[in-house]
Design a protein around this nucleic acid. Structure first.
Lengths: 208, 208
DNA sequence: AATCCATTGTTATTTTAATCACAAAACAAG
DNA sequence: CTTGTTTTGTGATTAAAATAACAATGGATT
């Protein structure tokens, strides 16, 4: 994590706030109090206010936060006031699911290419894309100045492929492989592993 | 979260340790020091030792931890010394991907059924399963005493379906819908939302 | 214009988690 | 059997995060 003023945990909560604010926006609500938002996200109101105050106050005493304005500010803070291009590396089942999932596009992440080095996959269609060879990856990433990659290759290949991605300019990796990546400080890594989440939950389940 | 002696963050790290220990096991290594494990997972050795010490000491001074034994203990602690049956609710693209992903099975989570209420999906094959109607869900969960569900229905349906799952006995929900679920204290919920992770990473990316 | 009410922004406090530091234990070597 | 080396387990300390408390503010009401 890059050394910074604002705690990482706070940054992590902002997207959650955005999710609920978008919901309020769709419902046509114009103002929201920290208490109401708290109720929606299951986080204390005082913590929400504190989180937001890191970026300066944008609420109004007595009435609360303007939904549109707050959403707009959060978008800007999180650099989400633009479209981000994303490449998917690894076009197996998992990669396919990532490309075909439209949640990314809906939130401003455009998947522009999918790569694999398995000859049988290259040239095949995945969603709206045609799978490209890994040899084309570097050129594609650099030409489009892509900064974000989703890594869906087999675990054994993940560290090596991640290194390569960083070498060609990637600064954020959404890693679906269950392996810890050792990356330079200016490269972000997020781990997506539903199995780990399940393994945590079983701790709390009755032993029967 | 259930009120407990041991901090939730500690529980959350145990599955990560297991992941690496399994790797060492495959490599045939018999002993591991906290320092070596630390190197592998990117967490300080002192924190690993402290985490483990919550459950009593199972290392040997001077030599480290016996890989097989430690793995065994962690399995028991996390209730992973058994097979857990899981149902998937929602058999669209996402549900399909979850059923077909074999990472769950490999770690002892057996997906025994997939449900949907879309008539066109009911009866179709998803992986090795035949999609069942939601009307059959209650009977299936109760007959098999299933405690874990993966929730892959559309966001709008998620809260309602989650409530139903809890009513019929589910105690842990892996929620893929981007919505906060309000659940009783004895029900675990984990959120899987790769978009949130991406939105967090963009904060740290250069504004270009 | 004065009062009241709701709700923010922020300082102070408490709680929780991470890190440090070191004594105790295991084992190997002389 | 003593000495040296390694590495654990844990009490003490520091750092970080969450919570509480409340003054300040904006708007509504009389």
């Amino acid at each position: 994590m890059i050394e910074n003023q604002i705690p990482d945990v706070v940054i992590g909560r902002l997207p959650i706030y955005m999710l609920r604010l978008n919901q309020l926006l769709r419902d046509g609500q114009q103002l929201v109090s920290s208490a109401q938002l708290a109720e929606m996200v299951g986080i204390p109101a005082t913590q929400i206010r504190k989180d937001l105050s890191w970026f300066g106050g944008f609420g109004k005493q007595g009435s609360g936060y303007d939904v549109v304005h707050l959403l707009d500010r959060l978008k800007t803070i999180l650099n989400l006031d633009r479209i981000w291009q994303v490449v998917v590396v690894g076009a197996g089942n998992l990669g396919k699911a990532v490309v075909e999932y439209d949640g990314f596009r809906r939130k401003g992440f455009e998947i522009i290419a999918a790569f694999d080095n398995e000859p049988s996959l290259i040239g095949s269609k995945v969603g709206h894309l045609v799978v490209k060879s890994m040899t084309e990856m570097e050129a594609c990433i650099q030409q489009n100045q892509v900064l974000i990659a989703a890594l869906t290759v087999p675990t054994s290949a993940a560290p090596e492929v991640a290194d390569k991605l960083v070498r060609v300019g990637i600064k954020a990796i959404l890693n679906y492989a269950p392996v810890t990546l050792r990356m330079p400080d200016d490269v972000q890594v997020s781990y997506i592993d539903p199995v780990l989440s399940m393994q945590k939950m079983t701790y709390y389940l009755p032993r029967e």
